[in-house]
Design a protein around this nucleic acid. Sequence first.
RNA 1: GUGAGAGUAGCUCAGUUGGUUAGAGCACCUGGCUGUGAACCAGGAUGUCGGGGGUUCGAGUCCCCUCUCUCACCCCA
Length: 462
Amino acid sequence: MADLVESKPLSGFLDVLPEDAAVFERAVDSLKAVFRKYGYAPIDTPCIYSYETLTGGKAGVDKQLFDWRKGDEGGKHIALRFDLTVPLARYVAANFQKLTFPFKRYDVGKAWRGERPQKGRYREFYQCDFDTVGTTAATADLETALVMADSVAAAGAERFVIHLNDRQILNGLLESLGLLAQSEKVLRVVDKLDKIGEPGVRAELTQAPPVVAGSQDEVGLGLSQKAADEILAFTSLSKEKQGDDLWKTLEERFSSCDRARKGIERLRFVATGAANLRGTERFQVDLSIARGLGYYTGTVYETLLTDAPEFGSVCSGGRYDDLASSYTKQRLPGVGASVGLSRLLSALQKIKPEASVATPCPVLIVTSQDVDPFEGVRIADILRRASIGADLFPQAIKGAEDSSKLGKQLKYGDARGHSFAVIVAPDELVRGAVSVKDMKTQKQDEVALEALASTLRSRLFP
RNA sequence: GUGAGAGUAGCUCAGUUGGUUAGAGCACCUGGCUGUGAACCAGGAUGUCGGGGGUUCGAGUCCCCUCUCUCACCCCA
């Protein structure tokens, strides 16, 4: 015998079993329904791009890309997309004259990262993006928050909190400290507050920068203690105060800073509006969240599951001033977010492992070895014509090698989770009837063929 | 890329200070039950002990190298 070849997927890639795929498909359907309800239209975009397109011409982003070695286009380096937002930016730039703005689209698809996998982090994963492109209006930011709440709930999460912030406020603070140029690095460190705590963040902010520029293992921005104090005092504000207290404090603190005041105004609109429509327990102003992504410039969102915060954010997003600046001179502001469905579902599975079934059909047709196998196909067909999902256990003609006994067929039905078995056997068949067995209660009774569809329908959907 | 841990049956794992033929549970197959599953009883099949080298009379066990996976860092859904 030839040596067998590895059948397991690569690390960070997932096989999905039927029972999990059923959950996944339901979740996707629910999400899409939410997106459509808010006016987002579906689009589709390619998975592979040239390096240049993916990175937007910027250096340094390519570290996490999933390389594609074969199929180079005229020597061009190509790679898989790492999210759905970059493809959107490119798409909007490429189809600018065909689209109507504000443009709202959703896109459900896979993205790839070339990094080491970890808990809740894969190298291939699904994202469900929705964005509103071509407006700076704060209502779009507020509606984005609502879509996030509705989608995470629709995917099956019960307890979660959407953290809200606006980068303009922190940027205002940094501006007053003369640190605006380092904004992105500072935001990234601040973003780790929940993970490494205040001492950790303070250390990273004040430690000397890496000796070797660009080193990945050393951290440190070399800020002054005073700057670190200011930053930490600011981010802890939302931990001490929420609601009107917080707004009042912020407005006083930043009364002379134009940039921050705009951010406060918008954040207040979004946070109070969202809490008003979906409940205060769903939304929380959190001045410490920043999002690592560089293109966010205003509102930022992050969603944590109350029962599984260790999985990280399951739905994040933000507002950007100019999404497609790398691809077009047209300025395209917008706001959007992404449901990390692979992560969300793996977290939900941990919170409440649901007994789900491996079959989409409620009914299994099993046939005795003593009847013409055609009867099974015929009876299954009756149910399908009546729009009742019916799976027929493949049954060979009597005496054939792989003809299965009733017991084995019922065992299969049990393993797959069918609700009812329709047993086709000679005694009933001569009377023009079959036996219908409830797989849970084990009760079974004889039903005439003419009444089969209606009987099953009433039992399946009482 | 950096650091830590782990690789034994399809899955989860046990395997004593190195000792003959490597085990258990679950799952699977067969029969008890020629017209009835998830319970029970009896039986059955399954392993290059991740790979390579070394020490030894003898290695799943000790040493070295290598590969892979997991967790964490970086970064992020």
